[in-house]
């Protein structure tokens, strides 16, 4: 066991020394990997933030029924009784135009604008909760309510949330495709790096084989090298995303202050960060493993 550990420690330190021996080469390939990986990682971060934002929005099956501005009290009462008896309606709330205006004034930023209006431009409205979240039911309800007298406009509030969700799904697929392509590129890059190393260390490998080195002993430093370089690339990507977010959050904070809203983009969660590091290290290892399997057998003592 301790011999096994010693050999792994030796292979690990050998790989580290190899990285340190050519610092500029190592740094430039780490930077290239970091930049490549920061694209899907950054995309993922933006998607996660958008998803968090959209989940904060109530996506309950809710419709807003706006009445004609000149609807009388009787019209309101009539619509209310229709809603009360409708089998698909779970609950409803009447929002009179004054209350709507007061609410609008409360939401910051537009108070001045509202103040400057001579009269209340808002109509009376009902906010209706449907019993079923099914899109068909909601759409049917919307059409039916549009036909009611003095109903000016019926809006399906969850529609845009659904659209956003669909958009996020597309985004997620795009990030996945990007990640897969760049992962392939990283594996190829490590594959070639290790191939060159094997070529330049031909003598060393031959001697090691001659004095009885096992395949594992010869492979190990290359595998550690690949994994270390992958890990360093992943860490660089994490750093690039962190830097980009720091810059973005600065700008967003400015924007948010102007609109009096709090926008803050969060970085990868600790779990996701670990996954990024682990995945990048694994890709490096994989590239090295493939290269070693392909090229080491060609180096035999003569």
């Amino acid at each position: 066991m301790s011999r096994w550990l010693t050999q792994h420690a030796q292979a690990f330190s050998l790989a580290l020394r190899k990285l340190a021996a050519t610092p500029w080469n190592a740094l430039s390939s780490i930077a290239a990997m970091g930049i490549a990986f920061s694209l899907p990682a950054g995309g993922y971060v933006l998607l996660e933030n958008a998803t968090a934002l959209s989940s904060r929005i109530d996506s309950a099956p809710q419709l807003s029924l706006f009445l004609d501005p000149d609807a009388a009290k009787a019209d309101v009462a009539q619509i209310e009784s229709r809603l009360k008896e409708h089998p698909q309606v779970k609950s409803y709330e009447f929002v009179p135009k004054d209350k709507a205006l007061a609410r609008l004034k409360e939401s910051a930023g537009v108070a001045d604008v509202v103040e400057s209006l001579g009269r209340n431009p808002l109509p009376d409205a009902f906010v209706v909760q449907a019993k079923s979240p099914s899109a068909d039911v909601l759409e049917g309800l919307r059409k039916e309510m549009t036909g009611w007298p003095k109903a000016e406009y019926v809006q399906l509030d969850s529609a845009w949330a659904k659209r956003l969700e669909a958009l996020l799904r597309v985004g997620r697929i795009a990030v996945l495709v990007l990640a897969a392509l760049l992962a392939f590129a990283l594996v190829t890059a490590i594959f070639n790096t290790i191939r060159l190393q094997i070529l330049t260390q031909r003598d060393e490998i031959e001697v090691a084989k001659m004095v009885g080195a096992t395949g594992g002993f010869i492979r190990r430093p290359f595998l550690y090298y690949g994994a270390l370089q992958g890990l360093a690339g992943g860490t660089a990507a994490w750093g690039i995303v962190a830097a980009a977010l720091w810059v973005l959050n600065g700008a967003l904070g400015e924007l948010g202050r102007l609109y009096a809203i709090n926008i803050h983009l969060a970085h990868l969660s600790p779990g996701d960060s670990l996954s990024l590091f682990g995945f990048a290290a694994w890709l490096g290892w994989l590239g090295a493993w493939m290269s070693v399997g392909r090229h080491l057998s060609q180096v035999e003592p003569q």
Binding site: R3, T6, A208, G212, T214, F217
Partner: peptide, 10 residues
């Protein structure tokens, strides 16, 4: 080198 290969104590 041959001793590293066989995992000898340093």
């Amino acid at each position: 080198l041959p001793l590293q290969v066989t995992g000898h104590d340093r």
